[in-house]
Nucleic acid binder design. Structure first.
Lengths: 143, 143
DNA sequence: ATCTTTGCAAACTTTTTGCACCAAT
DNA sequence: ATTGGTGCAAAAAGTTTGCAAAGAT
């Protein structure tokens, strides 16, 4: 299991900043590592509660933000105000279906052309991972 | 001023659905027509209050949703959960700077390639207007 | 020992809802 | 006269904060 490596490496990153590896942070990392996918803060809180019921919901928010600022987790804004978190992984683009809410993970290459156009024509450096594209998925199109 | 035409056409659309043109809806439309740009519901409420202080905030939410469902206004999700509204206009893509928060309106063509790739390779019909892309604007890159 | 992080409770922001009354058709 | 919409107040949902106690280094 390389969740151990994740914990070790994160601890090192934290210490390098004068911050600390704590029980709640470990629990948040483990919850995310064991449950691949995208989780709203409240979902993370539930997953964390299975590991350590004493971790408070507000600590989950603070841990997620601390780990995001460290670069170990990322959040994605999906439509309608929800924010979901996941461990930082290979750059991936997300797309959400407006109708059924399904969230798809796509290769970053789908936004390569857009990224180039934005950079060259507008001087804008696209962060393709930070918001989910919106549209209608194949299933809903055929329904 | 073609705000009058907007009101008339919207009234016709509403009646065609068995719905009604009301004072609050008129005020929301006027507020958006007179203040181009992107406004959070609370901003709209403030603008509406200048026109008619008796319009309740909850009515602003309901009017925005009614007008959105009618197609007369659109909303865009910008980073961090905020939702902003504007009158439906020519299809445009939005991009927000993560650092300064500035919101840019871009030609839809920047996402043409992405739209084709999503449709052809993933069967996903991209709605380019519904979420704002995220990244870093030219000013912040040079700062 | 020091300084960060946590648990807790409470505040806050934003949005939604039930309901009686009002108003557009 | 219908029936859809509004104002209001209250609730719901999601997130943040102040502070004293606990914990990591």
């Amino acid at each position: 299991m390389d969740a151990d490596r994740l914990l070790d490496e994160t601890a090192a990153l934290l210490r390098a900043r004068g911050e600390r590896m704590t029980g709640p942070r470990r629990a948040v990392l483990l919850a995310l590592a064991r449950n691949p996918g995208h989780h709203a803060p409240d979902d993370v809180a539930r997953l964390v509660a299975d590991l350590d019921a004493t971790v408070h919901r507000s600590s989950v928010y603070r841990c997620l933000e601390a780990l995001r600022s460290l670069g170990v987790v990322q959040h994605v804004h999906v439509g309608h105000g929800a924010t979901v978190y996941h461990l930082t992984d290979t750059e991936a683009v997300h797309a959400q279906c407006r109708h059924c809410g399904a969230l798809f993970t796509l290769p970053a290459s789908v936004l390569d052309a857009a990224g180039s156009a934005l950079r060259d024509e507008h001087g804008f450096a696209l962060d393709a991972t930070h918001v989910a594209l919106s549209g209608t998925c194949a299933d809903c199109l055929n329904a």
